[in-house]
Amino acid sequence: MKPAQKLTAFKTILSKEVMRFLRIWVQTLVPPAITMTLYFVIFGNLIGSQIGDLDGFKYIEYIIPGLIMMSVITNSYSNVVSTFFTAKMFGHIQEMLISPVPNHIILMGYIGGGMARGLIVGLIVTLVSLFFSSLTIEHPIITIAVVVLTSMLFSIAGLINAIYAKSFDDITIIPTFVLTPLTYLGGVFYSINMLSEFWQNVSMVNPVLYMVNGFRYGILGVSDISPVASFSLLAVFIVALYGFAYYLLKKGVGIRS
């Protein structure tokens, strides 16, 4: 395919993906807004008012970056895992497999779709948070870079999950048993300085901790982790997982018998 044709193919996949979650916005965009409003009310206002400052910030101010990040992660992941898996189950992935669209374009199209959903939800949650707290962003470029890279990383992860999934159960197992615990334990609600040294060390192997703290650094200027560590980790994971996803697609794992 010529570069112009590749671009057309990419735009096709991306816009198809974006149209899909926009068409069913009640299922894709509204739920995170509602859940996060509840989090803000309960953890931020009700319980938060009983908790003192954290790193010099009110509790609600401290958890807002974490909660935005949590929505971005889950929505990027679940967008790609469900749409790629459905394409596999109902067979319309074959429309792409028979055509000359390169694997890189398929990957980038789906990842782009997951990122679009994750980032739009992130924006919605940010807007909702304005009802509960004011927001000043300390380092805008870092903030945007971290959230974009994180949504990219979890879109790729969702795609890999979908490639291996054989049933609808398989696309909920990883989010429930891996993704949710990692996010909850990834410093969304607390600073790891509150933990004993042992648990602090255990927390350091959780990649989500680096992203949440990177994002919190961007917004508040405070973090348990150095921003350099956050970016390095994101870069390494993205390259590794993208390479792996490309390999799986090229081999036809789960999609070509």
Binding site: K2, T8, A9, T86, A87, F90, G91, Q94, V101
Partner: peptide, 29 residues
């Protein structure tokens, strides 16, 4: 290819299915 089993996205409108397929071949809208 016209496959043996229906394999389009059943939630998509007819015209979208065709236009998307065109897109995968790099044909502009």
């Amino acid at each position: 290819l016209v496959p043996q089993e229906f394999n389009f996205n059943i939630w998509e409108p007819v015209i979208e299915i065709i236009l998307n397929q065109a897109g995968y071949y790099g044909i502009e809208r």
